[in-house]
């Protein structure tokens, strides 16, 4: 026993980190691939469920603009407004709590109409091949597609305003976002 090897802690206490690194790499890969960097395009909204909702294919989303109607975050979610109705999943009738945003930028009634007309003008000129005069004629239809992603707790007056403003710019291809039924 006297010649037993004395414990060298630096050699004997050994942690094999290779499996941990492997698993961490896999986890990292998973979270990186599933990370949603489209946060500015798509605001956080609770979409209404629909049984007849068509699947929104990726290629159909190309060239389409997303318009979000969403509630200002409440104090429950560290936001600036107090709204018991919204927090309780009820409809919120306070129009000051709702926002319209496109690509992270918020719009008021007037600027929304200006945006719609600008987009319609550009689209008709660049994509539909119209000349300047026709592109500015907002009685001629514009083929630009707009996806309205409206929170299910919003009152109808918000999508109504959007429809009116899009109609003024002759943008008629309006799609409404809804939560698709889960596939079994």
């Amino acid at each position: 026993m006297s010649h037993s090897k004395s414990a060298n802690t630096e050699d004997s206490v050994y942690m094999n980190v290779i499996p941990m690194v492997d698993i961490m790499f896999l986890l990292l890969l998973f979270f990186m691939l599933t990370a949603d960097f489209g946060g500015r395009e798509l605001e956080e909204v609770k979409l209404a469920d629909g049984k007849s909702v068509a699947e929104d294919k990726q290629d159909e989303a190309k060239g389409r603009m997303n318009l979000n109607i969403f509630h200002t975050p409440t104090t429950k979610n560290d936001g600036p407004v107090v709204c018991a109705d919204f927090d309780a999943d009820r409809v919120c009738h306070d129009s000051g709590h709702w926002n319209i945003a496109i690509r992270g930028k918020r719009y008021g009634s007037d600027s929304l109409e200006t945006w719609a007309k600008d987009q319609a003008y550009w689209y008709k000129k660049e994509k539909q091949g119209m000349d300047d005069v026709k592109a500015k004629d907002f009685t001629l239809p514009c083929e630009l597609r707009i996806m309205v992603r409206c929170d299910s707790r919003a009152p109808f007056q918000f999508p109504q305003l959007v429809m009116e403003k899009m109609g003024k710019a002759a943008i008629y291809k309006i799609e409404y976002g809804a939560a698709a039924p889960t596939k079994k």
Partner: peptide
């Protein structure tokens, strides 16, 4: 990435084009 991860709702659409 774990903190910024959130489960996305499967989104669909309904067409109701303006006349």
């Amino acid at each position: 990435f774990m903190c910024s991860f959130h489960f996305k709702t499967l989104e669909g659409k309904m067409d109701a084009w303006l006349p």
